[in-house]
Computed example of a mutant assay.
Amino acid sequence: MLFRRSLRTSAAVLALLLPFAAACGGDAEAESSSDVSSVTLRAGATGWKVEEAVLKFARLDDTPYKVKWSVFQGGDQQLQAVRAGALDVASSSEIPPIFAAADGRPNFKVVAVQRGSTLNQEVVVPKGSAVTDIAGLKGKKIGYVQNTTAHYFLYELLKQAGLKWSDVDAKPLLPNDGLAALNGGSIDAFASYGTSIITAHQQGARTVGSGADILSGNFLWSARDSVLKSPAQKSAVADLVARITKAYAYVRDGHEAEFAKVIAENTHQPLAQARKDLVAQQKQRPTVARTVGDDAVASQQKVADVFTELGALKDHLDVKSFWTTDLNADLRKAL
C-alpha cells in the first residue's frame, strides 16, 4: 500500500543521508573561528528551493559563506536529516522539531522564528467527490503528511467537526504519494500543504477544510548543536535567515509580478495563479524573521500538548529543552 511505501521512503532517505553526513560532518564541526569565508552551511528546503530562489531574485545570494541547499518533501524529513548529521540547518513548521526531539536526545536547537503564511494548508477531496465538509469524512480514508502541519490541522479540524481521530481511517503519506493516492482513488481525502495542494487543485481537487486559522504561522529554523559551538557558523546562519527576510521585503516592494514568474516556473502553475497566491500569502502574514521569545516557545508547547492528547507522543514533552536564544544577538545585528 502507498502509505507503507511512504514510511519505507523515509527510512531510505535516512540511509542515503548517513554516508553523506559521515563525509561532511567533520568539516562543519571543525570550524571554530569567526571568519565565515570558510563556512559551508548545509540547509534544507521543502518542496522546492524557494529560499535559494528568493535570495537570487533579490540579488542577496552573494553570501560570504557557501550554502548547499537540499530539497525535501517535508520539514519532518529535514529534521531527520539534521538528526542524521546530513544538514546543519533546517526550516520547518512547529511540528517536526517536536517529533525529532521526542526521544529526549535531540542534537539541535530551534534558533529563530520565521513568520509566514498559513495558506495552502488544506484538506482536499478529488474531483467528483460527494464530500462537502470535514464532517462528511467520517469513516473515510484520509491521507496526511505525518508529523507536519497537516497532521496537526487535520486533527484539529476533525475535533471542530465533532469527530475523533478514530472516526476516520488516517493514512500517513508523503506529499507525492498522497497526490497519487488521491487521484487513484485509494484515499477519499488528503491533508497536505504547499506545492502538493497547488497541484491537487490543478487536478480538480476541492477544499473541504483549511488550516489557515488553526496554524500559528510560526516557522522554525533549527540548527545542529555543533553549529552553535562555532562563532562563524552561528554568524552565517543568522545572516542567512536575515537575508531571506530582506529578500521577501524586496519582493513586497513592488516586485511580486516578477517573482511570481519564478514561482510559476518551479511549481508548474499558471502565472496568474502564482501571483495571486504570492500576494495573498504576503498580505496574510509577511515573511519576516524574529528572534526566539517566550511567546514562540509557548505556541509550540501548545502544539506538542495536542499531539500528546492525540497519542502521537507517548509522554509530555517540554519544548523549552530544545530552544535557545544563542542566535538572538547575531540575528538582531544581521536584521
Score class of each variant (00 low, 15 high):
Met1Gln: 15
Cys24Trp: 12
Cys24Phe: 13
Ser33Leu: 09
Ser34Met: 12
Thr40Ser: 12
Ala43Asp: 04
Thr46Ser: 13
Glu52Met: 10
Ala58Met: 10
Leu60Asn: 12
Asp61Arg: 06
Pro64Leu: 08
Trp69Tyr: 07
Ser70Phe: 09
Gly75Met: 01
Leu79Gly: 02
Gln80His: 09
Val82Glu: 02
Ala84Met: 01
Ala84Asn: 03
Gly85Pro: 02
Leu87Lys: 01
Ile95Pro: 06
Ile95Glu: 10
Pro96Leu: 05
Arg105Ser: 15
Glu122His: 01
Val124Ser: 00
Gly128Gln: 03
Val131Ser: 07
Gly143Thr: 05
Val145Cys: 07
Thr149Phe: 13
Tyr152Val: 00
Leu158Lys: 02
Gln160Lys: 11
Gln160Leu: 08
Gly162Ile: 06
Lys171Trp: 11
Pro172Glu: 13
Pro175Ser: 15
Gly185Arg: 04
Ala189Ser: 03
Thr195His: 10
Ser196Pro: 05
Ala200Glu: 01
Gln203Pro: 03
Gly204Ile: 01
Thr207Trp: 04
Ala212Tyr: 08
Ser216Trp: 05
Arg224Gln: 13
Asp225Trp: 15
Ser226His: 15
Asp239Ala: 04
Ala242Ile: 00
Arg243Ser: 01
Arg243Gly: 00
Arg252Thr: 09
Asp253Phe: 07
Asp253Gly: 12
Gly254Met: 07
Glu256Thr: 12
Phe259Thr: 03
Phe259Met: 07
Ile263Val: 10
Asn266Gly: 12
His268Thr: 08
Gln269Gly: 10
Ala274Ser: 10
Lys276Ala: 14
Gly293Gln: 14
Ala304Asp: 06
Ala304Lys: 04
Ala304His: 04
Leu310Asn: 11
Asp315Pro: 08
Thr324Gln: 09
Leu327Lys: 01
Ala329Gln: 11
Arg332Ser: 15
Lys333Asp: 12
